[in-house]
């Protein structure tokens, strides 16, 4: 039998072994890091409204979880629920109550106060306002909060470097 000088191509192996052991290692490390970050971050304090918080360098205040008020361009949210609509940070003229208090905000804060575990002891309020909010709006919210008994304010800021 003549030996064929034409070399026949051997069928190339089509099996490709996917090395997923190293991928599992990377995923495990990434997962541990993210779980650790998730556990230590104050996730309930993340702002829900479309607002940008002011940045302060070397701020030392520690956030204590309490009733939250958010002031954005177009609304005021209390405990993550819309309480009052604003127009470019301005209150409606009908919200001009005695002593600069907004009746709606004061009413909602009073209702929320009654739902707190210790309504007579808790006077702390977490305020998250957009950095462009004018003082007139802040003043009205602060006055409303004071009328509802919230006199200790935590102004939430982003900690700069």
């Amino acid at each position: 039998m003549r030996t064929s000088f034409i070399k026949k191509k051997k069928n190339a192996s089509t099996d490709v072994a996917l090395q997923i052991t190293s991928m599992a290692d990377i995923f495990m490390i990434l997962l541990v890091f993210l779980l650790k970050n998730y556990a230590t971050s104050v996730t309930n304090i993340a702002p829900t409204a479309h607002l940008s918080l002011p940045e302060v360098n070397k701020s030392k205040g520690v956030i204590k979880e309490t009733l939250k008020v958010e002031i954005a361009n177009d609304l005021v949210m209390i405990d993550q629920k819309p309480a009052l609509a604003l127009h470019a940070f301005q209150f409606d003229p009908s919200e001009d109550g005695p002593g600069g208090v907004s009746p709606t905000v004061a009413r909602v804060l009073n209702e929320q106060r009654k739902l707190r575990p210790e309504p007579n002891m808790d006077s702390s309020l977490l305020v998250m306002a957009d950095q462009q909010t004018p003082y007139s709006t802040i003043k009205r919210v602060v006055a409303s909060a004071a009328s509802a008994g919230f006199v200790d304010l935590q102004l939430v800021v982003v900690q700069g470097e």
């Binding site: 993210l34 970050n37 998730y38 971050s41 104050v42 996730t43 304090i45 993340a46 918080l53 302060v56 701020s59 030392k60 205040g61 520690v62 956030i63 977490l126 602060v142 909060a145 004071a146 919230f150 006199v151 200790d152 304010l153 935590q154 102004l155 939430v156 800021v157 982003v158 900690q159």
Partner: peptide, 14 residues
């Protein structure tokens, strides 16, 4: 869902 911002507070009274 991770938040990589560090939040802090400025405590004031009314």
């Amino acid at each position: 869902t991770a938040s990589f911002l560090t939040l802090s507070s400025v405590d004031v009274s009314v």
